[in-house]
Computed example of a mutant assay.
Amino acid sequence: MKQIIASTSSAIRSEKKNFRVSNKAVSVLLLTPMLGVLLFTLAWFSPITTKYVQWLVKENHPVEMLTFIFLMVGSILGAYLAYWIKSEKREAPIIGLFLFLFSFGLFVIAMEEISWGQQFLGFLTPDSLNLINEQNETNLHNIKGLQGNSEYFHLFFGLAGAIGVWLNLFILNKVRVPLILSTWFLTIVAVSAVDLYNDFVPFEPEVGYFLRRLSEVNEMMIGFTAFAYVLLLSRKFRKPAPPASLESKVANEKFSPYMNIPL
């Protein structure tokens, strides 16, 4: 047990250096998801705050909009990082390809979150999609067979991240999931597992409704985790160049081709 704790502490210290984050930032990242779910649960079942919390998780309200923003910003940042890696040629091409595909996935999920803009622009759902979409919206996640099964995706995302923290990805090891995001993935797994359990062994109706609303918070955590993952990789790969040493400056001046140009 001591060896595991020592190994974990060593890994976190290494990540703080690689990702250029402070001790305070690491503590916030590790504690926020668990405390967030706990506070949401307490606020939901408190008569004083329940109506405000329910408002937050309604469609097109803050939680859903934050989910979209996190996913979209993560997509843009990831695509730019993939382009930067390709242009600078500092990493293996497969690293850039992975980031591009990951960013494209974030973009698709972000647009699905707002039904590809339908919720804001108000355009009609195409007839072919309208026939198979359970909510008559322009998206894929509500078509027959997929609608109401988002917890499987949530669980997959959480497990992939939680396992990815420790998995040796060989050539992709440089994009391995940071340990400082592990509590986010574990919290996502826990919430998704309870939500999935409720599908097979239903709780009381009021608890079931709470879990459906908590699922919106879970999606926001997924969006933030994806964004934070890309942001940390960006800080890792795009480190500023170390300052030149005095010796190198002298050498550059000594052998500069412009030294003998007459004034």
Rank of each mutant, 00 (worst) to 15 (best):
residue 3 Q to M: 04
residue 4 I to T: 12
residue 6 A to M: 10
residue 7 S to T: 08
residue 7 S to C: 02
residue 10 S to K: 04
residue 12 I to P: 03
residue 12 I to D: 06
residue 14 S to E: 13
residue 15 E to Q: 09
residue 15 E to S: 05
residue 15 E to C: 06
residue 18 N to Q: 12
residue 21 V to W: 07
residue 21 V to K: 01
residue 23 N to R: 09
residue 24 K to A: 14
residue 25 A to T: 13
residue 25 A to C: 06
residue 25 A to G: 01
residue 26 V to H: 06
residue 26 V to W: 08
residue 27 S to A: 14
residue 28 V to H: 00
residue 28 V to A: 08
residue 30 L to Q: 05
residue 30 L to V: 14
residue 31 L to I: 14
residue 36 G to P: 08
residue 38 L to Y: 12
residue 38 L to I: 15
residue 39 L to G: 11
residue 39 L to R: 04
residue 47 P to S: 07
residue 49 T to P: 02
residue 53 V to D: 11
residue 54 Q to C: 05
residue 62 P to Y: 11
residue 63 V to K: 01
residue 64 E to K: 00
residue 66 L to S: 09
residue 66 L to N: 07
residue 67 T to E: 05
residue 69 I to R: 00
residue 75 S to F: 13
residue 76 I to T: 10
residue 78 G to F: 04
residue 79 A to Y: 12
residue 81 L to R: 04
residue 82 A to L: 07
residue 84 W to A: 12
residue 85 I to E: 04
residue 87 S to N: 14
residue 89 K to R: 15
residue 90 R to K: 15
residue 90 R to D: 13
residue 90 R to Q: 13
residue 91 E to H: 07
residue 92 A to D: 12
residue 93 P to K: 01
residue 96 G to P: 06
residue 97 L to E: 08
residue 99 L to C: 10
residue 103 S to A: 11
residue 105 G to E: 11
residue 106 L to S: 08
residue 107 F to I: 03
residue 108 V to D: 06
residue 108 V to F: 13
residue 112 E to P: 04
residue 112 E to F: 01
residue 113 E to G: 00
residue 114 I to Y: 04
residue 116 W to S: 05
residue 116 W to H: 09
residue 117 G to N: 03
residue 124 L to A: 12
residue 125 T to D: 06
residue 126 P to A: 09
residue 126 P to L: 09
residue 128 S to R: 00
residue 132 I to D: 13
residue 132 I to R: 02
residue 132 I to N: 05
residue 133 N to A: 05
residue 133 N to P: 06
residue 135 Q to S: 05
residue 136 N to Y: 10
residue 138 T to V: 13
residue 139 N to L: 04
residue 139 N to Y: 04
residue 140 L to M: 12
residue 141 H to M: 05
residue 144 K to P: 01
residue 146 L to P: 01
residue 146 L to W: 06
residue 147 Q to F: 11
residue 148 G to C: 04
residue 153 F to V: 15
residue 155 L to K: 03
residue 155 L to H: 10
residue 155 L to Q: 14
residue 157 F to K: 00
residue 162 A to S: 09
residue 163 I to K: 00
residue 163 I to R: 00
residue 165 V to N: 01
residue 167 L to P: 00
residue 169 L to I: 14
residue 175 V to W: 03
residue 175 V to P: 02
residue 176 R to G: 12
residue 178 P to A: 09
residue 178 P to H: 08
residue 182 S to W: 05
residue 184 W to I: 02
residue 185 F to M: 09
residue 187 T to C: 10
residue 187 T to S: 10
residue 187 T to A: 13
residue 188 I to Y: 03
residue 190 A to Q: 02
residue 191 V to H: 00
residue 192 S to Q: 11
residue 196 L to S: 01
residue 197 Y to E: 06
residue 199 D to T: 00
residue 204 E to G: 01
residue 205 P to H: 04
residue 206 E to K: 03
residue 209 Y to M: 07
residue 212 R to W: 14
residue 215 S to Q: 11
residue 217 V to Q: 02
residue 218 N to E: 15
residue 219 E to I: 01
residue 221 M to H: 07
residue 222 I to V: 15
residue 225 T to W: 03
residue 227 F to P: 06
residue 228 A to N: 04
residue 231 L to S: 08
residue 231 L to T: 06
residue 236 K to M: 13
residue 239 K to Y: 10
residue 239 K to F: 10
residue 239 K to D: 06
residue 239 K to L: 11
residue 241 A to T: 14
residue 241 A to F: 06
residue 244 A to S: 12
residue 248 S to D: 14
residue 250 V to D: 10
residue 255 F to Q: 02
residue 257 P to I: 14
residue 260 N to K: 09
residue 260 N to A: 14
residue 261 I to V: 15
